[in-house]
């Protein structure tokens, strides 16, 4: 049974800004990529009319050891953007699954702050006048996906795919 984790954060940027910044959130000072390790894939759906961006990320391979699935929904609320993040962390290593799940959740929780800070950094750089007094937002919001730092290393693949999905979804709109 996977462990479930969720949190909600606010970005002091409009939904349009967050949606545009989303594709440019890496690299940032909190998150840069180097080592090749676990690859992750991201799917996303953008609804420009309702102003909803949903991202869904999972790791490829090593899923028996640990699988992390993250879903983030960005919605426009007032002039701000609320990100609701859900994560499911599982492991099927006999005898260790419980410990690994607990480790995964702990890791994920800690990484959330970094993700949010990193995304806010990019947003502030892109839209300097926006949210001037807002600082980093109310606790952060969240850009992304992912969970284990190692699992994010190969986010390039995910980004590639995400864009592809955006294009696909446009085609079917």
């Amino acid at each position: 049974m996977a462990r479930y984790f969720e949190n909600t954060t606010t970005f002091n940027f409009s939904w349009d800004q967050v949606a545009c910044g989303y594709w440019k959130r890496y690299p940032n000072p909190q998150r840069f990529f180097n080592a090749k390790s676990v690859k992750i894939i991201e799917e996303s759906i953008v609804d420009p009319k309702e102003k909803v961006l949903v991202t869904y990320t999972r790791n490829l391979g090593y899923t028996k050891v640990m699988s992390v699935v993250e879903r983030v929904e960005y919605r426009s609320v007032g002039g701000q953007t609320i990100a609701h993040r859900s994560a499911w962390i599982d492991s099927q290593v006999f005898g260790f699954s419980r410990a690994i799940r607990a480790f995964g959740v702990d890791r994920f929780r800690k990484n959330c702050t970094q993700m949010v800070n990193g995304f806010n950094h990019v947003l502030h750089a892109m839209f300097p006048r926006a949210s001037g007094a807002g600082g980093g937002g109310v606790g952060g919001g969240a850009p992304v996906r992912e969970a284990l730092r190692e699992m994010r290393d190969a986010a390039a693949a995910a980004t590639d795919r995400a864009k592809h999905n955006v294009l696909s979804s446009v085609n079917t709109t």
Partner: peptide, 27 residues
């Protein structure tokens, strides 16, 4: 992609042909 996304897609223009040729090569 980024200029298409911000200048067209978010403004309701769903024609994604602008980047399709570069996308194909890249993909």
């Amino acid at each position: 992609f980024n200029s298409w996304f911000s200048e067209r897609f978010l403004k309701g223009d769903h024609d994604d042909s602008v980047c399709s040729s570069i996308f194909k090569v890249y993909q």
